[in-house]
């Protein structure tokens, strides 16, 4: 019997084996019950993880849900009859639809933003008690886009600024990702593999003294919670 191939089964399912390797692995699987059992395990996990990935992408935020009335009246439609939805959907891919109203609604075919990968609520530390923040991490193929919105932070004192950090609380490892704008918001891009090494977001008040190290004056902090955790 040829050598066991358990570590090549992922490659087989992912299409990463060349012809020669594929033939060799299949020949081995035909005669090895142990590796065939392993193939079942790998296939189950492969399919499940692919399903998890796809579901996360499907959960991308909806286009803006507007509360404004439509200028062009559309046929009213209740929300419940499933088959009616299906027919309407198939017939009019870009249809306008009214919900629960007397006849005004709109389909907005805008592209969806990347799916939400994780969320964090920022709580005040050394800041006014009504200071807070929200972090939304969106996932593109290999980059995480981190949107930070804060409220209640006082304007930074003269020659000071607020800076956003990624934090791993267990080790206190920190990574600066950028300055918070004076409006209290910011958007930052971080490689997914780097983002995965941190589990919290911290905002510090920094002195503009040329020292890039964290000031230890944290004003807001929150744990990043994956949307599928």
């Amino acid at each position: 019997m040829t050598e066991h191939c358990s570590e090549e089964l992922f490659d087989l399912l992912s299409g990463e084996l060349d012809r020669e390797a594929t033939v060799r692995v299949v020949a081995h699987l035909r005669e090895c019950g142990k590796c065939t059992d392993e193939l079942v395990s790998v296939a189950v996990t492969h399919g499940s993880l692919r399903a998890a990935r796809r579901a996360r992408e499907e959960l991308s935020p909806r286009p803006d849900i507007s509360m404004e009335p439509l200028s062009v009246a559309q046929p009213p439609l209740g929300i419940s009859p499933h088959r009616r939805f299906r027919r309407l959907y198939l017939a009019t891919a870009a249809a306008l639809i009214v919900l629960a109203g007397a006849g005004s609604a709109l389909f907005l075919g805008r592209p969806s933003p990347p799916p939400v990968y994780a969320l964090a609520t920022l709580h005040h530390l050394d800041a006014p008690t009504d200071a807070a923040g929200r972090v939304t991490v969106r996932s593109t193929s290999r980059v995480k886009q981190m949107d930070v919105v804060t409220s209640g932070l006082p304007p930074a004192p003269a020659n000071h600024y607020y800076e956003v950090w990624l934090l791993q609380p267990q080790t206190n490892k920190m990574l600066p990702v950028g300055l918070l704008s004076p409006s209290g918001e910011g958007t930052y891009s971080v490689a997914g593999a780097i983002m995965a090494q941190y589990s919290a977001v911290d905002i510090s008040l920094q002195s503009n003294d040329g020292n890039p190290v964290h000031s230890t004056d944290s004003v807001l902090r929150g744990t990043v919670v994956p949307t599928f955790s």
């Binding site: 286009p63 849900i65 439509l70 499933h82 939805f85 959907y89 919900l99 629960a100 609604a105 709109l106």
Partner: peptide, 19 residues
């Protein structure tokens, strides 16, 4: 959604909610 008036929703996303 039944209670609200004039809510505007992507019909393809509604398929993921109803029925």
């Amino acid at each position: 959604l039944r209670r609200r008036k004039n809510v505007v929703v992507d019909v393809s996303q509604l398929r993921d909610l109803v029925g």
